[in-house]
Write a protein that binds this DNA or RNA. Sequence first.
DNA 1: GGAATGCGGTTTCAGATTGCAACCATAACC
DNA 2: GGTTATGGTTGCAATCTGAAACCGCATTCC
Lengths: 174, 174
Amino acid sequence: MGKRVSHKDSLCGVARPLDAIGDWWSLLIVRDAFDGSRRFGEFQRSLGLAKNILSARLRNLVAHGIMDAVPAAEGGPYQEYELTEKGRGLFLVLAALRQWGEDFFFEPDESHVLLVDKKSALPVRRLELRAQDGRILGPSDTVIRRPSNTPEVETPNRQPPPARRRASKSRAQK
Amino acid sequence: MGKRVSHKDSLCGVARPLDAIGDWWSLLIVRDAFDGSRRFGEFQRSLGLAKNILSARLRNLVAHGIMDAVPAAEGGPYQEYELTEKGRGLFLVLAALRQWGEDFFFEPDESHVLLVDKKSALPVRRLELRAQDGRILGPSDTVIRRPSNTPEVETPNRQPPPARRRASKSRAQK
DNA sequence: GGAATGCGGTTTCAGATTGCAACCATAACC
DNA sequence: GGTTATGGTTGCAATCTGAAACCGCATTCC
């Protein structure tokens, strides 16, 4: 998880989320949460991962404000895990990932589950990235730009290797 | 634990991509590739990761058909790495991740790079998931559904189930 | 009441993975 | 020939992973 760079100031808008999510299990947990899982045991059965790993991942998700641990609704001694607003913000990330998976990881004739609109029961539309004027944008239609108040350097968002030769020791979850 | 996962089978649609990507480094490499990086050294300097790890990740990306290793354009003895069609399909995943990052990982007054439309030089619109009729869909407006009467448990390359032992963890190599 | 069971974890520990550093190979330069 | 730059591989210590065992607390069963 916190495998690298605690150096948040130089982490770009892609790397910070990745740093927070930590690993793929976390995203699968979130996916399950969207699907209605709330309990430790539900996640564990659904994902089939070791309990200690699930425990660590849930702690990490809570620590990052992606999920909340709340007292069990039905009064038991247990707690439940629910997505925070921040966690629900991952909805589109998961949707994008799912669409990519559908495009490239299944044979044309291979059946797979679909994300459908509850109301119409029809599959959702494909995601599209659009410009302000509505044009659909592809990879080559966009560029990364630094905010105006930052020194030049345009196309890339490369950060010069900060001279940290060993600053990347994970600061584990806590 | 060897039970047929219930409706959580959708895990496949998300888990397969995750399995292919391998880890977050891979996604950062892909992001850099979108930004124009092509050479081993470019990726290494930009990301600051160990060479052996970069080497393994690039091999993995190539093995999964996300990038291609091609002879260097300028005739040198080296090779360059470029995104395949499949790799370019990750564009929206990265865009979604970036927007999530912008929403939750930066202080309101904190400057960060933006994804802008080349033509207008304006930031792109937010991604939206829409139903066929155009309604914008949120997490609670959608549900995962099997496409048809799937005869439960068949597709041979389904892999979430019981034995996710060490061996399957070798996402990184080969 | 008390044993058995289920749930929600933590601990243990061998083995897998990571990543720094050192090394190797080739090509271009001086 | 010697030096530097690029593109890796190898060695190795430290870290992380995960199966299984264990623990504490309620609830259920007898």
